[in-house]
Design a binder for these strands. Structure first.
Length: 106
DNA sequence: CGCTTGACACCGT
DNA sequence: AACGGTGCCAAGC
């Protein structure tokens, strides 16, 4: 289980309608390399299996996974999940940011 | 081995 | 509030 794999694993653990920050993920893995998390998702070999779009920046913004592209389709998808996005920012971000989504399931 | 870069984060101005 | 600079950890050149 590499660091990156853990990241994708966490992403898949994120409940629908909720999001998490790179920071929390990194800390959850026991590190301070927020950037490593982002790169891990970027390299994401399991893209369709890892809802990286549920991972946002600490500001509540989409970050860079699509916020700079015209791939706002993902944003629309987030809204369908229950995550309201305003101008590229998460509504009620602080309330949707799930931290200890942990591995209690299964 | 050392410098630079990177889907970030935080403090200071 | 927006912009700039610095810190974090790892990978690439």
């Amino acid at each position: 289980m590499d660091f990156d794999e853990k990241v994708w694993a966490l992403c898949r653990r994120i409940p629908r309608g909720k999001v998490t920050t790179y920071k929390e993920i990194a800390l959850a893995l026991g590190t301070k390399a927020y950037r490593r998390v982002g790169q891990a998702l970027k390299r994401n070999p399991d893209a369709p299996h890892a809802p990286c779009h549920r991972v946002v920046a600490s500001d509540g913004s989409l970050g860079g996974y699509c916020g700079k592209m015209n791939s706002w389709k993902k944003i629309a998808l987030l809204r369908k999940e229950g995550v309201e996005v305003r101008k590229g920012k998460i509504e009620e971000f602080e309330k949707k940011t799930v931290i200890s989504f942990s591995s209690s399931s299964s």
